[in-house]
Design a protein around this nucleic acid. Sequence first.
DNA 1: TTAATAGTGTCTGTCAGACACTATAAA
DNA 2: TTTATAGTGTCTGACAGACACTATTAA
Lengths: 226, 226
Amino acid sequence: MVDYPKPNQSVDVVLLTLHQGHLCVLLAPRPSESDLFPGALALPGGYIHTDEDDDLLATAHRVLRGKAGVAVPYMEQLYTFSGKYRDPRGWSTSVAYISVVPALVLEAVHGAGPEAPRLYPVETVPALPFDHNEIVKRAVVRLRGKSTYSSLPTLLLPKMFTMSELRTVYEQTLGLSIPKVTFRRKIEALGIVEPVCGLVQAKGASRPAQFYRRTSEALMEFDQAF
Amino acid sequence: MVDYPKPNQSVDVVLLTLHQGHLCVLLAPRPSESDLFPGALALPGGYIHTDEDDDLLATAHRVLRGKAGVAVPYMEQLYTFSGKYRDPRGWSTSVAYISVVPALVLEAVHGAGPEAPRLYPVETVPALPFDHNEIVKRAVVRLRGKSTYSSLPTLLLPKMFTMSELRTVYEQTLGLSIPKVTFRRKIEALGIVEPVCGLVQAKGASRPAQFYRRTSEALMEFDQAF
DNA sequence: TTAATAGTGTCTGTCAGACACTATAAA
DNA sequence: TTTATAGTGTCTGACAGACACTATTAA
């Protein structure tokens, strides 16, 4: 029986958020002391710290805290990428995680010097090292897919939002337009949001909109498509 | 910067099939020369062979060929299990794959000595080492979930089958009863199967049923639930 | 009063599901 | 002719989506 060398094993995080009306992904320059692609834009990632991480989910959270300084409420395993050739250093695996957060959480991060992580619209992500472009693509597909049958898109919004904002987010992530009335009825039937008593958003010269909030912090799944 | 030890990294395969009307999983006794749980029933699994495996999917196929002697057409990544405590030897990850095959492929395997792999109904899987029970559970959830919006359950059937058999499989994997007419109309609208001209199944004292086959070997996804 | 967006009442076409029917074989 | 299962025609209720309406604020 041959003793095979262990492949390198890393964790990469795809953090998705809304920024200026676009779905964006967080990219950070690789550390300048890195042995491969130093300074190049890439997904925040890192190795497992067997002493402090209880599992890969913990690794993902720690990596994101370290590279972007953000603690996120929602993190989900996306896929494990693997192969002989995805990393020039040899056989490797990367367990990718996806996080979906409202824009506000990152306001502090964005625009803090050239070394800081920044947001890039998913439609125009630059060329990334390894198979990171493929990872981003799969993350977006996952978000779009889950949007048809879950409350995942609500995580892109802040604590309170209007029905219009909610509809816009669903339309953006799904890439289709949903009739106003249909959307409202569906959302009300599903019960994924509840009105915040008495609070409304007055925006410009128009009737103010009712504020809503998620009924549950947890992800909710339903089975009919929009 | 500390240099962390690499966790152990294995691949486990959950092979699901129909056997005597029940959804079953393939379990094999661990090799008697194993350093941990020798002889215990477990999911077929193994380590990455960096010289022969191009990626983890290849590892999964090789493992299944080696442990059960079967080459399967359908294999899909399920989830990556990880943690400090899932393996008593220390920090480890296991990338689980799921395979869905018709019963016939395994007829040869089943019942060939005490060392051979065998099929166990998913409802009554014995206690397994590591977190293998959890892995099996997640595999079944995945199959059930995908059944609501894909042609995955057709992979549990042989090349040819009747509409009734197809409906029974969907009912079994989904755990609900689907009205005969509704099911037929849906399936015909989706176009995931086509009638095999002239061929019918005569079974007992009743009208023979039209044979159908998959229109495509690939998995087909649709968006309405049953 | 106008502009602009929020939210509602009502109709219509589509489709899931119920039900009752016809079809086709063996015994 | 009976039994058993395959497969079809038709009705009904639920609901998605269209459309036109009312509501509520600032300018």
